[in-house]
Computed example of a mutant assay.
Amino acid sequence: MSIEAAVLPTQYEPPGTADFWIPLIGDGAWAFTRASLLALVSVGLIWWWLHATTKKKALVPSMGQMGTEAVYGFVRNGIAKDLIGSKEFLKFVPLLFSLFVFILVNNLFGVVPPFQNPTMGRIGFPIALTLVVFVVYHWVGIKKHGFVGYWKSLVPAGLPKAMVPAIFFLELITDMFTRPVTLALRLFGNMFAGHIMMILFITGGWYMLNSGGILPIFGGVTWIMTFVMTLFELLVEVLQAYVFTLLAALYIGGAVADEH
């Protein structure tokens, strides 16, 4: 082995999809992965948080109770009530609150040690949550308006008869395909891309810090940028939990609206 090979670091390998596929038990499609474990951990943390902050409810709330009530009030009044309407919103608040908190905690795992892996960066989790929303908003719409009335309402009244088939087909694609696909991909794409960027900055910075010449200077700058990226990623993680819950409420509100 040459002296250069012994001193210089090995060739840099950029991050990829393998950084999200971390099987703990088994292998293949049915493997129990780190993302699955984090999802279970998030459920335990959420249960502990809700139990700890609400078991001793008081007229003058503690800081924990105040925080829980603030999050609940935000989802209840700022999302559910505004988008579904005051007549129908209450029965959907538990679902929307659960979605928001679950997604938020799992997104924050992307930057919080020792987890540092966003669960929603695995496409299966956004798909599962989207399927729940998909079934709910179609089910409540059909239940309220009837099967025929629900699908008939996809076509706005007053259209020329010649345009009705085309508009119905386009609206059907939107309801059955475009909405669920974009809902899942938006959450997955943001979490996947953000985590890849974080790994790239951290590992790339470390590689340059251990290289010769002027590369350590760029490595230091890269790690400073990593801190900035972390703050930006925190914002994106909160925003994506909000956007997913907002769109879920919007779809449910459209399905149960009287004019649907």
Rank of each mutant, 00 (worst) to 15 (best):
M1S: 15
M1W: 12
A5K: 14
A6R: 14
P9A: 13
P9S: 12
P14Y: 10
A18T: 12
F20A: 03
L24Y: 06
S42E: 10
V43K: 06
K55E: 14
K56M: 13
A58E: 15
V60Y: 03
S62T: 13
M63F: 11
M63T: 11
Q65C: 07
M66N: 15
T68I: 05
V71G: 08
V75K: 06
N77R: 10
I79A: 09
K81P: 04
L96G: 01
S98C: 04
F100Q: 01
F102E: 05
F102L: 15
I103T: 05
I103R: 04
N106G: 03
L108T: 02
G110F: 01
F115H: 07
P118I: 03
G121V: 03
L131I: 14
F134V: 09
V136W: 08
W139E: 01
G141C: 07
K143R: 09
G149S: 09
V155E: 12
V155F: 12
G158N: 09
G158C: 04
A162Y: 07
F168Q: 05
L172P: 06
M176W: 04
F177K: 08
V181L: 10
T182N: 02
A184G: 02
L185F: 12
F188G: 00
F188V: 04
F192A: 00
G194Q: 08
H195G: 07
M197R: 12
L200T: 13
F201E: 04
T203C: 01
N210H: 13
P216E: 03
G220V: 00
T222C: 12
T226R: 11
F227V: 15
L231H: 06
F232S: 10
L234P: 02
V236H: 00
E237F: 15
E237K: 15
Q240F: 12
A241D: 09
T245M: 07
L246E: 10
A248V: 03
G254T: 00
A257I: 13
H260T: 09
